[in-house]
């Protein structure tokens, strides 16, 4: 079964062709980073315009890369939310048109469910049950993929997403957008214990996150030092900020895995490419006897293959999305059917 996946919820115009929910035949991402860089973040109207411009070239390249034609497709999957509404609508309109043109079923996918399904592409099957930390520029959520295949939100950020915090701190340090890779690189030369930044909600007993206070603490500390005439070594700021953020993310993820009784953990989303988060999560999971699945960075960031994989699972379970579906910028999680691969083993 060949499913084409379309993802346009934020600033990546992504289309992929995935076979049987696990084999990536092509995975094309049209990046808009250069267009948003001058603004230090994603500008919704610029994103929507760029999606429309990139749509057909990315579609063409995804099909050519997979070595298939439009008539070979068996289904079209598309992110219907959550995300930027103007951006989502370009992908949703394209997916509906493609479903009509090729006379194949349409399946709408939740972006977060797509992220979790990156593990299916990396591991060959969707491991259940599992705790997943989804960290990106738009999301910071801890979700449980239950044994019955349902996705359940355990906690989420109550203010900024982790990627947002990276971008904001990078801006303060005079680093270019996107800030994640820049902070990651700079932090390697710094001392993570140099400045004690707050660990918000670390011991509050919830699995929620708060990141706006951390960003403000960085700005406050830098201003205080500037006023006091104290020189500040930027790598120390980057390393200390990153350590504060990572420590909370790791502690809550491991705690959630223990509390829900799962033995497998994954980290997905753009921030999952952060080297300190990967290392700290690996060490904590090993100490706690948990299996950690870390999909390659290319599958962690927004891509069409994860949407195709999630769509495949739902199509195989007999689900279809009507052609009048709307994009939903605030879409919540709905039950995720178990993929047949895993089901046949249990």
């Amino acid at each position: 079964m060949l499913v084409l996946g379309i993802e346009t919820s934020c600033d990546e115009t992504a289309v992929a062709v995935v076979q049987d929910g696990v084999t990536i035949r092509s995975n094309v991402i049209g990046s808009q980073i250069e267009q948003h860089r001058p603004y230090g973040g994603v500008v919704p109207e610029i994103a929507a315009r760029a999606h429309l411009e990139l749509l057909v070239p990315v579609l063409d390249r995804a099909l050519a890369g997979a070595g298939v034609g439009y008539p070979d497709l068996d289904g079209v999957a598309v992110t219907v939310g959550p995300g930027l509404v103007g951006a989502l609508l370009v992908g949703v309109a394209a997916a509906k048109s493609l479903a009509l043109a090729c006379d194949v079923p349409l399946i709408g996918v939740n972006h977060l469910e797509g992220h979790v399904c990156a593990t299916q592409l990396a591991s060959g099957s969707l491991p259940v049950p599992m705790a997943a930390l989804i960290v990106s520029g738009g999301h910071t959520s801890l979700v449980l993929l239950r044994a019955d295949g349902r996705l359940q939100t355990l906690g989420a950020t109550i203010d900024d997403a982790a990627g947002e915090a990276f971008d904001k701190v990078a801006r303060v340090l005079g680093l270019p957008y996107p800030g994640g890779p820049e902070i990651d690189r700079l932090a390697r030369e710094g001392d993570p214990a140099a400045i004690a930044f707050p660990r918000a909600l670390l011991h509050d007993g919830s699995w929620d996150f708060s990141l706006s206070g951390l960003k403000s603490a960085v700005v406050r500390e830098l201003r205080r030092r500037q006023a006091a005439g104290v020189a500040t070594w930027a790598p120390d700021v980057a390393a200390s900020f990153q350590e504060a953020l990572v420590e909370v993310q790791v502690a809550k993820t491991v705690d959630a895995a223990r509390a829900t009784g799962v033995d497998t953990v994954t980290v997905v989303g753009g921030v999952a490419a952060n080297s300190r988060l990967r290392a700290a999560m690996a060490a904590a999971c090993e100490a706690a006897g948990l299996r950690l699945l870390l999909p390659p960075a290319a599958l962690c960031t927004d891509n069409g293959a994860m949407i195709a994989a999630a769509g495949h699972n739902r199509l195989v379970a007999g689900e279809r999305t009507a052609l009048d579906v709307a994009a939903d910028p605030n879409l919540g999680l709905a039950p995720l059917p178990l993929p047949p691969l895993e089901r046949s083993r249990t």
Binding site: V172, L173, G174, P176, L186, E189, W233
Partner: peptide
């Protein structure tokens, strides 16, 4: 960008 002075290593970004 907020005008806060920090020292960056040589070649380490455009801070």
């Amino acid at each position: 960008p907020a005008p806060i002075l920090v020292t960056v290593p040589p070649g380490g970004g455009e801070g």
